[in-house]
Amino acid sequence: MRLEILTLALIVGACTWAFRFFPTKADLSGIKPDGVLARFLASTGPAAIATLFVASVLPMMKGGVPLPLGIGTASVLAVYAAARSVVMATLAGSVGYGLAVWLL
């Protein structure tokens, strides 16, 4: 393994671990249940996941919304509505997207 790649991996890996670990030790006992910080933290999850979904599909949307993306998204929505299963919805989205690419 080249030294520069190992160095890069160690720096980034150590910082990423620190970002994930040290905030779990933050003292949250003084936060009021309906206070500003509590509401901020409650909104963090939906905001983060919505952001990551958009960030992951944006590169696929150059020049509009391609049909496979629409079919893949619709497959996730339909299967989640029917089965309430993250596993099934994820697989259905991938299969729907792949089938649309194949057929179109």
Binding site: I49, F53, S56, T73, A89, T90, G93, Y97
Partner: peptide, 14 residues
Amino acid sequence: FMLPALFLALLLSI
């Protein structure tokens, strides 16, 4: 498309 599908399904779950 597996990762976008996973993010969307997780979003629906919460």
